[in-house]
Write a protein that binds this DNA or RNA. Structure first.
Lengths: 227, 227
DNA sequence: AATATTATTTAGCTTTGCCTAAAAATTTTA
DNA sequence: TAAAATTTTTAGGCAAAGCTAAATAATATT
């Protein structure tokens, strides 16, 4: 249907749209895809013709619903194959990416659906990334406390259990809100307080605080399990 | 390492070398690959540069040892994937070809070896075609056509040379598959069609059909040789 | 507000792999 | 064995997807 190259652009745009609030620029894309800006411009024009992206010269790009659903289909395939490689073929989770990059472009509805079924319809790939279902819907993440995680993990805030105004004011001061990204820099052993990076600032959170912040995994550290 | 297109040429040359005694001509290749003779000529020059084929203008082409071993690697992948699709993903044997054509080009030594291991190192794919091992060696099997046998012989199906989906569906309808037992009840002299017993049913097979079914002897008749 | 810097686009070139039409070589046939 | 028929190759184009260098638009600086 679409070329591998086109699919890679859709996937890259999707990932960049997810990971940054701002629109997706030509240069960001060229960096992501290890290609030159001029090549990106060309491709964006092609993708816009095919109604897969909204593209305005000099003002970046975004996916149309059609483009987004195609991107999700690729991501679904990628993550299912990663799961297969790790669970069935003894791959390590740091070896799967390259091969999954190839497998994600195989075209066959039946293949994907049967693979999904064969694997037991997993919701998360070996990196903890969510696997969209056949309709392109991502699974719900279960809320977990920030205090459960380990150094190196990157997390998205999904809720706060202590609704006291002093706690909320504290969060406000540090610009922590819904969908804020946090990454854990270090954990003090004696009181389990965490040094956390938020928008290029590093702040210290007490155990009381980390127990009251619900997060979802954004990216898990490759370090061995904490416990 | 090599492009999909180059790999498809190698595979096609391999198959044509196997199936006809004569050398492989430009026009045979263009027919096999559904492409024009002029395109074939071009590609053969490229493949010759890369030492994958011996090519002499106007006099056809043959694989070098390097080309042959690459072709066998592709065929190995193709047949392993077909086995996977049928055994693990509920594909019918007449549905697998198209997808295997894509999967055979995935580049990853580890993937192929682990898949082979996962599947239990099968020797034959769902059509009964032999699967080369990692060194490119084909399992022994003597191909004899059902049409070579005589009344009273009992045989085991070991492969089917016409992989068209209509032929495979015909076999399915009569519940003939790999390892199915057949015994020859009678042979019509005028058109060499056979009346064959399969699981208590008797069915009529045309000469075309019996020439495309490979068998091994299960029990030979004590009658005199047919020929 | 004008200029400098940076980002983006355009223009023109390359390679792969396909095409058609024309030319050349081989094979067939008379 | 020479002409006719067929096969193969060459020549010249096209589209995808990349590149570099030059031009242009947007943003930042003073």
């Amino acid at each position: 249907m679409y070329s591998q190259s086109e699919e890679n652009y859709l996937k890259a745009i999707y990932h960049l749209e997810e990971s940054s609030e701002k629109g997706v620029s030509t240069s960001k894309l060229s960096e992501e895809l290890q290609t030159k800006a001029a090549s990106v411009t060309e491709m964006l024009k092609r993708l816009a013709e095919k109604k897969l992206v909204n593209y305005q010269k000099y003002y970046g790009v975004s996916l149309t619903p059609k483009g987004k659903s195609w991107a999700l289909a690729i991501i679904r395939k990628h993550r299912l194959w990663e799961y297969f490689l790790v669970e069935c073929l003894n791959f390590n989770w740091d070896e799967v990416h390259e091969v999954a990059e190839q497998l994600e472009h195989i075209q066959s509805k039946k293949l994907v659906e049967e693979l999904d079924c064969f694997l037991g319809r997993p919701s998360f790939d070996p990196h903890g990334d969510p696997i969209p279902n056949a309709a392109g819907v991502l699974p719900e993440f279960k809320k977990r406390r920030l205090s459960e995680f380990k150094v190196g993990d990157t997390l998205i805030c999904k809720g706060f259990s202590d609704a006291s105004s002093s706690f909320l004011q504290f969060l406000d001061q540090h610009k922590i809100g819904l969908d804020t990204l946090l990454s854990i820099k270090s954990i003090q052993e004696f009181d389990e307080s965490m040094l956390v990076k938020v928008r290029n600032n590093e702040i210290m959170l007490s155990k009381t605080a980390t127990q009251n912040i619900f997060v979802e995994i954004y990216k898990e550290s490759k370090l061995k399990e904490k416990v």
